[in-house]
Nucleic acid binder design. Structure first.
Length: 312
RNA sequence: GGUACCAUAGCUCAGCAGGUAGAGCAACGGACUGAAAAUCCGUGUGUCACUGGUUCGAUUCCAGUUGGUACCA
């Protein structure tokens, strides 16, 4: 069996990943209780304390059972990214592993999990003014502008980047302008050293079952007051955090662009597609052990086995 | 019960004056190092309701059957 990144550290980080609505929250809590440890969230939307219903944050009852980190720790007005997460999470883990041998990391944000497991290159944060200005120029002149600009600043990135993807090009342009060096020359893509072993578990279900769970969970969110939550967030809708499945669609409803039923149907569709992208992302990483959310026993065994290897 | 219209992809529908079919959405596959629940790329998945008839050849024309819709009773 493959224990990615595993050496003789006697400390183990257990990743519980998988598509949205696959049952990660309950599964991670059971696992944490079994090993008397805590949970570190890797969910880029559950960070925001004002977004609880639409992001399926663990309930108060669940939060009382197991200590969670990186849940409701930010406001939607705050800027955040995967690099900051890496820095903060690694620092926190240092402290957590001082007291225990196992920590569970649970969430569906692949980029954040990667940042946690092997790091992300250290580059400057975007300058909001510059980003706004580039955004404006893009709106005015379209993709052609971004392509031209990127080609001038970084030919290597120009050759490698998807020239239909404005976000990618914007990012490369931004960094090149801020640093005065081509973006591509700053990327090292190195696997950073981690002083702990990593066991990767991903949950999934047969597609029709996953879709059914997505549908029922979306309906439940509406019953729990998603619309009211989104109304409260209206003043912040321009913030990146609100560019999220479940929120975008309710904004469209509140704007009178569609019926509530239509908005709910759109939420379900967008969630299904999100789940598919997650499955693609995690599927690329061959270190994952794929389990069903009912496979707690096999998961416990995997962890125990990994700990034995660690202890050698 | 009678008359008319309809039946094509998961859904809404186009099309073929006879040469086994295509759009949108959904779905599926993929990319992705600071917006990542974001952003972007790719792929038609089909007993053309059923049974006969005409024809070299029927999803297309004809008849019947079944199901649906509308109107008349």
């Amino acid at each position: 069996m493959s224990l990615h990144g595993m050496r003789n550290y006697q400390k183990l980080l257990v990743i519980v990943a998988g598509p949205t609505a696959s049952g990660k929250t309950d599964f991670a809590i059971e696992l944490a209780l079994r090993f008397q440890t805590c949970i570190l969230s890797c969910d880029s939307r559950q960070f925001y304390r004002e977004m609880r219903i639409g992001t399926a944050v663990p309930s108060d009852e669940q939060l009382a059972k197991v200590r969670h980190y990186f849940v409701a720790n930010l406001s939607v007005t705050e800027y955040y990214n995967a690099a900051r997460y890496e820095t903060e999470a690694i620092k926190l883990l240092e402290y957590l592993f001082w007291q225990r041998d196992v920590v569970i990391a649970c969430g569906g944000s692949g980029l954040y999990i990667d940042a946690l497991c092997h790091g992300i290159d250290h580059l400057p944060d975007p300058d909001p003014e510059l980003r706004k200005e580039l955004q404006r120029l893009y709106q005015e002149h379209g993709l052609v502008y971004l392509r031209q600009r990127l080609q001038e600043l970084d030919e290597v990135a120009y050759a490698r980047t998807d020239l239909n993807n404005p976000n990618r090009m914007l990012r490369a342009i931004e960094v090149s302008l801020v640093t005065g060096k081509p973006y591509s020359s700053l990327l090292r893509h190195e696997q950073k050293f981690r002083p702990f072993g990593i066991l990767k578990i991903a949950l999934n279900l047969p597609r029709p079952e996953l879709h059914d769970r997505i549908s029922r969970r979306s309906d439940q969110m509406i019953r729990d007051g998603l619309v009211e939550e989104v109304i409260r967030l209206q003043p912040f809708r321009e913030h990146t955090a609100l560019n999220t499945v479940g929120y975008k669609e309710i904004f469209a409803f509140l704007d009178g662009k569609m019926s509530l039923d239509q908005a709910i149907a759109n939420i379900k569709t967008a969630t299904r597609r999100y789940a598919r992208r997650q499955i693609t992302w995690f599927g690329k990483d061959k270190a994952y052990h794929w389990l069903s959310p009912s496979d707690l026993r096999p998961a416990v065994e995997l962890v125990e086995q990994a700990l034995k290897v660690e202890a050698i």
